[in-house]
Design a protein around this nucleic acid. Structure first.
Lengths: 214, 214
DNA sequence: TTGAATCTACTACTTAAGTGGTAGTTTCTG
DNA sequence: CAGAAACTACCACTTAAGTAGTAGATTCAA
């Protein structure tokens, strides 16, 4: 008997999955959580064999939840179950300690089969993810993270403003520094990111969601 | 008894919702579809009282599906049931003839209540959408469309290239026109869109998905 | 305390962008 | 055919952006 904790902020989907799982004799849902904090609490309390975790949650995101769980020593098998086939989500999940990654548009049979396989200690992945993972193996680290890490806090701040379309003078006013100083930061940031203009920088910022990260 | 057609490309979620609905005596799921074409076929065949329609579908999108249904004379009450609270999706759905708009993170009870109310001919909306709708009433038409329509084909083409981060000289090379001509187009396009720089223009292009359209 | 990193600011340029005006060529429409 | 709209191109500027180098002030870790 495999005990399962469901974590997803859509009550509807939790219900569908739970009912699906309960149809199987060797599987049982022992708890449900609608957000990250609740999930962590229940995981510690129930110590389930498996945790089905959605990534797109309000408040604490799924990736963070996953990382916290592992840091707290939770050893349950954790399967990420989400709609996102985004590269960073897939790779991030694996690095954070996920044992599998399933897409929500899988067929119900696939989900059940995956859970059973994971219950035997195997890693399971939706077949659609094969190419994403293969690609990631070629360049071991996400270049985005590496590049971002090279930026100083000030440069990052200015990069965000570029992503909002700001001119040097405006940035200077906003940060209360001279326009000449802004130019220095822009120049350095362009070099670090191998970009050729503030236009490219602004677009880069948007594409890499620098803006929403606070 | 209200007959319902479920349209969603996630079999899992369809199952959850279907089971939820079947718990109610006066509601019954008479069909399920995983994409737009199938949905239209079933809608014509079954003529259900109500259609629960997801917007984010592969192939033909939900909005398009909705529009086609209405153009085919399908009079079923159509409730959009989706994760997106995007302004354009909400407004677009209403214009296309939706009778309601529910967010997927609603509680199960809310969904059932909404279906019943809609079954009595009322329009139903998730409370979270109130502000979006209020805002839309102030500016009746989506400004994006209007603004875009003012651009000449050449300007639109150059706007796309700005969205790719290109410099004037590069654009000139690519389109085989002089840089001075590119400047003219950029100038005119900035004025038409009320923007102040190519940076703002590039970001605008991305935000309004000018890039992917063709 | 010394060195490294960061933030600040300036000068002095060079290059790119943006503005305003003029004007020739198509192309399409009334 | 006349007029409008689009596309092209250039000149002459002004302003913004980007580059290079120097340098003082903090801060933080070895």
């Amino acid at each position: 008997m495999i005990s399962i904790l469901l974590v997803d902020d859509h009550p509807m989907l939790r219900q569908g999955v739970a009912q699906l799982i309960e149809l199987e004799e060797e599987l049982s849902v022992v708890g449900q959580a609608g957000d990250g904090l609740e999930a962590i609490k229940l995981a510690e309390l129930l110590d389930p064999d498996m945790i089905l975790l959605d990534l797109n949650m309000e408040g604490m995101g799924g990736l963070e939840t996953l990382a916290v769980m592992r840091s707290k020593g939770i050893t349950s098998s954790i399967l990420v179950f989400t709609v996102s086939d985004d590269h960073d989500d897939v790779i991030g999940s694996l690095r954070a300690g996920a044992d599998g990654y399933l897409l929500k548009d899988s067929e119900p049979e696939e989900l059940l089969a995956a859970i059973k396989r994971a219950g035997q200690g195997q890693q399971v992945f939706s077949p659609q993810l094969a190419q994403i993972m293969a690609q990631a193996l070629r360049k071991p680290a996400s270049q985005k993270v590496d590049l971002l890490a090279q930026l100083t806090p000030r440069e990052l701040e200015i990069l965000r403003l570029l992503g909002n379309g700001r001119a040097n003078k405006e940035i200077g006013r906003q940060l209360i520094i001279a326009e000449s100083t802004v130019k220095v930061h822009v120049k350095n940031l362009l070099k670090k990111l191998s970009l050729r203009s503030r236009l490219e920088a602004g677009l880069w910022a948007v594409e890499n969601n620098i803006l929403s990260e606070e």
